[in-house]
Simulated scan of single mutants.
Amino acid sequence: MTGAVEEPGKKLGTAPVGPPPDFVHGRGQEPAEAPQGNLSASHVIGNNPTVGIIQGFIPTDLTVQTMLTGCLSDPRLQRYAAAAKGDGVAREDTYLWNCDLAEAFHLPLHMAEVSCRNTIHSALMFKNMKWYQDDIFQKLLDPARRADLQRAIDDENSQHGANFDAHHLVSALTFGFWEHMTTKRFERWLFPRGIQKNFKHAPWQAKLEDLRIRIEGVRRWRNRVVHHNALFDKHPTAKYQDALDLISWTSSDLAQWVSTRCKVNQVINNRPRKS
């Protein structure tokens, strides 16, 4: 991700394994062992010796391919045809592998978003326990975000009544709203002493714009994942590292823990190829 600042000599929450070196250009990582991990049922090696195993995958049969084409559409699956042809497999196999990859991204993206928005919220709470009513804060918001906030307040008030407080807004507001908190307009009001007061593990030289760029990149990738788009040829290893890095700015321990549980690199290394 461009614009991010790395702390010299220290890499927190680094992904423990990497893809084949030709998968993400310029990374130069060696392929890791590919334990099966939590792959979908159709992609786990079986004991049937008559089934043609392709690097840990059971190829889909014609019945499944026809079903997927009928339900998901030929144009959608055709997006995967060129990559599948190069690997000597059916496009449906490459599509299902991409589904496994999307599933594997759930944990790091979940932790990146939730830890990040909670950290920003802590900065708001330090300013005002009812920050959402603060006149200065309201004036700093752009009109669209001010409308988003009011809708969230109304929705949460209707659900929680007298028990409503600021914490109910954290998950009610979009990741884009929290990214807005890291734009230049909020710097003097919310982060007058720099982001390190709240993002305690951010590199000492990191600026608010560096944080915003990281959040934007993770948010855009999250949107790509949840909208079921192709991921496999969009540098997923780099995107995984971006998520880990954002987590590490809040907690290096959490980033390390996520990296030991996440299956992204295992799924990448299980790319279906004809042997």
Score class of each variant (00 low, 15 high):
V5Q: 15
P8S: 11
K11H: 14
L12Q: 00
L12K: 00
T14Y: 05
V17D: 10
R27M: 13
G28E: 13
G28W: 13
P31K: 10
E33P: 09
E33N: 10
S40R: 12
S42R: 12
S42E: 13
H43W: 04
H43S: 09
V44D: 07
F57P: 01
I58G: 14
I58D: 15
P59S: 02
D61P: 02
L62I: 15
D74S: 01
P75K: 01
Y80I: 05
A82F: 05
A82E: 13
G86M: 03
A90F: 03
L96Q: 06
N98V: 09
L101I: 11
A104R: 03
F105Q: 14
L107T: 00
L107E: 01
P108R: 02
P108Q: 00
L109K: 02
E113V: 06
V114T: 07
R117V: 07
N118V: 06
I120R: 08
H121V: 13
M125A: 15
M129C: 08
W131Y: 15
I136D: 08
K139A: 12
R145L: 14
R145Y: 14
A147R: 03
D148E: 15
L149G: 07
Q150Y: 09
Q150E: 15
A152W: 04
A152I: 01
I153T: 04
D155Y: 01
D155Q: 05
S158R: 09
S158T: 06
H160L: 08
H160S: 08
A166I: 09
A166D: 15
H168V: 01
L173M: 12
F175T: 05
E179N: 10
M181D: 12
T182R: 11
T183F: 13
K184L: 04
R185P: 10
E187F: 07
L190F: 03
F191Q: 14
G194A: 12
F199W: 02
K200L: 06
K200Q: 10
A206F: 08
D210T: 09
L211I: 08
R212K: 09
I215R: 00
R219H: 14
R219V: 08
R224I: 05
R224S: 13
V225L: 13
V225G: 08
V226A: 12
H227E: 11
L231A: 01
F232C: 06
H235N: 13
T237Y: 15
L254G: 03
Q256R: 03
W257Q: 05
W257C: 03
V258Q: 00
T260Y: 05
R261D: 05
R261V: 11
I268E: 07
I268R: 07
R271N: 05
